[in-house]
């Protein structure tokens, strides 16, 4: 009895499998959809991060747009130049110069530099803290609650001593951090070289008001604009004309950086070999203890 039941069960399943797979096989032939081989090739060439940096929902949709709707081949920010070249080869077109897009945090104040900062016990996010007055004196600068850290899928942004700091080695430039920052202090900029000059302040107030809330913010003195025409003053804030920016900075630009009293004109990006050489002799603690008052990480207990 038992063996017959087992045998019958197996036979039932097997015959069902046979019949259904025959029907599906027939349907597969009958309803075959011709997929453009180029779409499949492009999907293979793309990184497959589905980050949405190109403006499409996922890599598949972008591949379809490239193959069928003549979309530009260099829109994949994550893949960069090499990916653009591969896609261009598949599509039989040539690609122009592709600059990597990287975020710049336009704030340079760490906890010690920020004045008028008060204890905040609300929801631990910049979006919430931005709705409350007097979390810190500066209404333009980084709040340091790490919305950008949580938005980053690539572990490339961390809050270091209250300031969002980009790890340019890991960053792919998808722009998720810039979208999520409630104060819009992160801009996605085309990097013409590994290191870019940036104004690391967003405060548009007058100098007196800036000094009241920040020890390092741009006071709008205009010294940089007088030293080099790369800089201009807009809304009491030094602004770099990135259109005219050259990857090799001229001497007047470097002089402008030196004249800045608040040292707000800094180079961001990957450290060059020279910097590493310089930093080799500097003292660095062998072990850095995390400070739970200031470190924001995803592991923290939220009750």
């Amino acid at each position: 009895m038992t063996w017959v039941t087992i045998g019958l069960s197996a036979a039932t399943m097997l015959s069902m499998a046979l019949v259904l797979s025959y029907i599906l096989g027939w349907a597969n032939k009958k309803f075959y959809v011709d997929v453009d081989q180029r779409i499949l090739d492009i999907i293979d060439a793309l990184p497959g991060a589905n980050c949405g940096g190109c403006g499409y929902v996922g890599c598949g949709e972008y591949a379809e747009a490239v193959a069928l709707e003549q979309e530009a081949v260099n829109k994949c920010i994550v893949g960069g130049q090499s990916c653009a070249n591969t896609v261009a080869a598949i599509m039989g077109v040539t690609v122009g110069e592709t600059l990597p897009f990287r975020p710049i945090v336009h704030c340079g104040a760490h906890y010690g530099d920020r004045l008028g900062r008060h204890e905040y016990r609300g929801e631990w996010s910049c979006a919430a803290a931005n709705l409350v007055t007097d979390v810190q004196g500066c209404t333009f600068g980084c709040l340091g609650f790490g919305d950008c850290t949580r938005a980053c899928q690539f572990d490339a942004l961390h809050v270091v001593d209250g300031l969002a700091t980009v790890d340019y080695d890991k960053c792919v430039g998808c722009g998720a951090c810039a979208n999520v920052c409630p104060r819009n202090i992160i801009t996605i900029t085309a990097f013409k070289s590994e290191q870019m000059l940036a104004v690391t302040c967003s405060n548009k107030d007058r100098g007196k008001d800036v000094t009241a809330v920040c020890d390092v913010g741009c006071i709008g003195c205009g010294a940089c604009a007088r030293a080099s025409n790369l800089f201009s003053m807009q809304n009491n804030l030094s602004t770099i004309n990135y259109e005219a920016y050259k990857s090799k900075c001229s001497s007047d630009v470097l002089k402008a950086c030196e004249t800045c009293k608040r040292k707000r004109l800094v180079f961001v990006g990957k450290p060059t070999a020279q910097d590493l050489e310089k930093a080799k002799d500097l003292e660095a603690p062998a072990l850095v203890e995390p400070d739970f008052k200031t470190t924001v990480d995803d592991m923290e207990w939220r009750g």
Partner: peptide
Amino acid sequence: AIDLTILTYIVYIFAIASSVQLVEMYVRKF
């Protein structure tokens, strides 16, 4: 008296999965 009702769940899931596959091919085509 032979009783194969123990197979109902697996057979039904099998049938459902195949018919969904069929519908998917059909919708994708047309």
